[in-house]
Design a binder for these strands. Structure first.
Lengths: 215, 215
DNA sequence: ATATGTGAACATTTTCACAGCT
DNA sequence: AGCTGTGAAAATGTTCACATAT
């Protein structure tokens, strides 16, 4: 009995991240081996505890069968529904520098339901450059293309100085979700989902760990 | 009166990340404007609260002056000491694909005390390729170069299937800190600091947010 | 007057432990 | 017997509020 993806309270970030990792793990499971998986097994693979797995899922419904575990296909589709992955999302990359260019062709994105449909840059030297069967667009056309192509998520990979200005334009154009790679704190309206990937910060956390062993 | 960087208890990940963000913000502050900064001002810029700033710092010592705030140069050097950034760390990038290549020349790394000294790949087509004044090395020489160059931190940017095998080699060669970009859960001994950057997961968190507005 | 440092209160997240299905 | 779903307990993280110092 599974009441698929009921509207929940307020779900923590860490829960959502774990749900994403459960989904990835299940997609990798050799489904010829078993049709079903226990919270214990899933926890082992995800590096967490079985109670955590069950609690995370319980916020959204009852997807398992007592005494048996979770049907892998059912859990897969439940997780996809929860995470909003029953649709393909239209993505644009803004900034065709080193990192932006690397992300454009990141195969994992498409594989997991994110379709990069446009790439923008403000540098005339980069505008017109081919990628796949398309070309890098001038950011003059940002608002227009975002509307025309129905861009829902933007990967922001511009220099730190340009990031806030560009974010403001994106918000103005109606973008509701941004993944920012620039090492600055950005501000956006409440209604806009904004996440940051800060690689220098990650290295600094490693530096801290190296400097303070065994803690 | 500042008892610089006393050895602390167990510091949470979020505290370390905030300390890193305080450091970055202070480095950007125009120090001609003011010599001193309050927890309130720092919090405003970091997107947190003044109590949080003071608590984070208090785990390591007393760096401020009551009634005045924190001396910017003193707080800068305290944060650098806490985060282990008084030294330059020797970094290697393993995997010279799109993402690895983008990271090699990420200017922020060097600016913040991380020196990329070697790049490895297992693909003969990539080995020998120039980057800066150096060349991509074959991973045959991994262990040897790691020891010779004193590599302390590795940025792992190989395909998911190769990541665990490569991590095992890195650990064998004595590497104690790894930043993993492959979308797999890796396992390493306790003593090894391992962090993951999973861009598809970040997009899935955005997908969740888009699908569940205003929560 | 102003702003830190911190114990205590509060909030959130994780773990425990067990009743309830299959 | 086996494994889920979930309240209750424990642990962890954040905010309050104020004594303390300049």
């Amino acid at each position: 009995v599974s009441h698929s993806s009921r509207p929940p309270r307020k779900i923590s970030d860490s829960t959502v991240r774990r749900l994403s990792s459960y989904l990835r793990l299940l997609q990798e499971v050799d489904d010829s081996t078993a049709d079903t998986i226990s919270s214990d097994e899933l926890a082992r693979r995800a590096g967490t505890t079985s109670a955590q797995v069950r609690k995370d899922l319980s916020f959204f419904g009852s997807f398992g069968k007592r005494g048996l575990g979770y049907s892998i296909p059912e859990l897969l589709s439940a997780l996809r529904a929860i995470l909003g992955l029953t649709q393909t999302w239209n993505v644009a990359v803004v900034g065709a520098g080193k990192i932006g260019s690397a992300l454009i062709s990141y195969r994992d994105f498409r594989k997991r339901g994110f379709d990069v449909r446009a790439v923008f840059d403000s540098d005339p030297a980069k505008v017109g450059r081919p990628w796949g069967s398309r070309r890098v667009l001038s950011d003059e056309h940002l608002e227009e293309v975002i509307r025309k192509d129905g861009i829902e998520i933007v990967i922001l990979a511009v220099p730190a100085e340009a990031a806030q200005g560009m974010l403001d334009r994106l918000v103005g154009a109606g973008v509701k979700a941004v993944l920012n790679f620039a090492p600055v704190r950005l501000s956006a309206p409440e209604a806009v989902a904004l996440r940051n990937v800060d690689m220098a910060m990650e290295l600094e956390v490693l530096s801290y760990a190296l400097s303070n062993p065994s803690e």
